[in-house]
Write a protein that binds this DNA or RNA. Sequence first.
DNA 1: TTTGAAACGCCGTCGCC
DNA 2: GGCGACGGCGTTTCAAA
Lengths: 172, 172
Amino acid sequence: MTDSIALDTVDLHILRLLQNDARTTYRDLAAEVGVAPSTCLDRVTRMRRTGVILGHQLRLDPARMGRGLEALLSVQVRPHRRELIGPFVERIRTLPESRALFHLTGPDDYLVHVAVADTADLQRLVLDEFTSRREVARVETRLIFQQWECGPLLPPSATTAGPGTCQASEPD
Amino acid sequence: MTDSIALDTVDLHILRLLQNDARTTYRDLAAEVGVAPSTCLDRVTRMRRTGVILGHQLRLDPARMGRGLEALLSVQVRPHRRELIGPFVERIRTLPESRALFHLTGPDDYLVHVAVADTADLQRLVLDEFTSRREVARVETRLIFQQWECGPLLPPSATTAGPGTCQASEPD
DNA sequence: TTTGAAACGCCGTCGCC
DNA sequence: GGCGACGGCGTTTCAAA
């Protein structure tokens, strides 16, 4: 189900360009990659159908929206049983403050990335939505000073051998 | 510089729709929101210029690209001085395995979200790129069982009072 | 499977309200 | 500031190779 898909040089080149700017036109993609625009459309459509491309997302600035403070909350849920964590996950997911939620190995079961207005807002969130819940045994709050998005996501160089070569041929 | 921008009902409605699918056409946005397409274009252009909208990003499935294992690495850097953390951050940012990097409060200075092929690949990454660095005092590795993207990012309800109302009027 | 070209539909400026 | 229309362009289809 989650098998890795064979991606050739053209696919990877397109992915790298689209990760720089997802609004790049097929016409510009084609000029850059060296194929016809219709071919680019074909490749992108295929990668959407095979699940490599999940979707196009808008990147917003939380600070410009009145959420100038971000934090990571490590949450220990006890007892860690399905009938408790189901509602917990669903509740946390739908909070307007939540940006991402991870279920992790280790002593802290969940990590929640939240964006709030200020420290008072953060305190309210932690008290009202986390520590007040019976199944939440412990919450550890860490503020985010700074964060970086990292380079384009590409397959490992030597992996995914198969019908297509899976490494980039031309650096930027 | 990072003042929150006044966003009215139309802006927020557009943002919610674009966060579902960033490729929604202005024509479809207009039909949904109840204004003219040119008005939608106007609003989006303004939000791009004011920095609310940072850009359009492609969402990919790491598993389909041969990176079926994700992990969070908590890294303690000692001594925590600018001349050491600058190159460290730059190196980690440009690793093909890195997806995101956070500078945090608390005993662990950095959190790195990585995507790798398997546990052997993860071990290689930790040994070669983290514990082998002189300034890295400690690395704690936690695997990601599951992760969730959360709802659309919107301003806090009561905050950002001003010329425009900043709360959503119509639920989906 | 890629391509070139043609038809369609969207974008984005503009003048007007 | 929002609206409607028009010109230009990007997208998408399709038949051929």
